[in-house]
Amino acid sequence: MRSSFPLFPDSASTHAGTVDAIFIIWSLVSIFFTALIAGLIVYFMARYRRRHSEEVGANEEVSVWLEIAWSVIPLAICLAMFVWGTRSFFDLYRPPADAVEYTAIGRQWMWKIQHPEGQREIDTLHVPVGQSIKMKLASEDVIHSFYIPAFRIKQDAVPGRYTSIWFRASKPGVYHLFCAEYCGAEHSRMIGSVIVMEPRDYQNWLAGGSAGKSMVASGGDLFQSLACVTCHRAGATGRLARGPALEGVFGSPVKLVDGRTVIADDNYVRESILNPTAKVVAGWDPVMPTFQGQVTEEQLSQLIAYVRSLGPIGSAPAGGTGGTPAGTTTADSPSAATTPQTAGPGAPQ
């Protein structure tokens, strides 16, 4: 139960302790320097109070060493805090290998959340304690920001690209979910709850809901119904091979017609569906039609989940594809998770 007048927020993720530690150390530093300055001012005010109207101050300069000290000490403190803060920041964008991916799509004015097993929720997020969860974020309209104060995490959901952040909940309970980036009239009502449960309870909750299909299965259905499969077919040769096979592509480097190599991450696959001619794989013609406007944000993430699930198969894809699935199939390389490489300017419709 929340206190009616809290002065310190709940801590419910493995990351929260680090942020709190930085906060407390910084606060102590701030209190020390504020007290030092205030103390000196009060002391000087009393000690050097003007006694008569013709009195003037002494023309003393302070020693050079004192000036160096009050430049170097703050600098050293700042740099130490910088290193600490940056380490904790990098951690936030490098999810552990066992992280499970959830999707949250922001729109005016709700969060649409989808679990890997297929459960969907609006403005509510159920998560099990102890599980690393990577939130993949997208927006259907304006910029939103996915903020869970009790976890000390926040990440903007930017239209036209994916961003992500991860957490591991550490304490069962009900916590706030806020939109932190101003997004229009009902911005302050774009709030919800994060319900952290024991793993067993979470499994019960999953079983109790009308789950429908998992992300991957839904993506597989879309892959058929949108006829992606006609061109992107494993092992196809000859006339049937109109596009590169996708098995094992996700997460590995792809060579493009213009000679560049990119990592086939969330943002690359997204762009290839919505704007296929932007980065064509070497050896293929730019014949794929755009699916802009035909797939929703949710369907996009299902399709991507499906593409990611296509592990490398024994038989290599048809010749001519530059994207040999030799690379790793890790869900996401750390840099790929945050590098905003799609949705650059240009490529007008």
């Binding site: 701030s30 320097f33 600490w84 920001s145 995490i153 932190a180």
Partner: peptide
Amino acid sequence: GLTGVMVATLGFDVHVHDT
């Protein structure tokens, strides 16, 4: 100024940004 360097600290700013 002191709270300014606090919010310049990356891991800390993630929590207090836009608050």
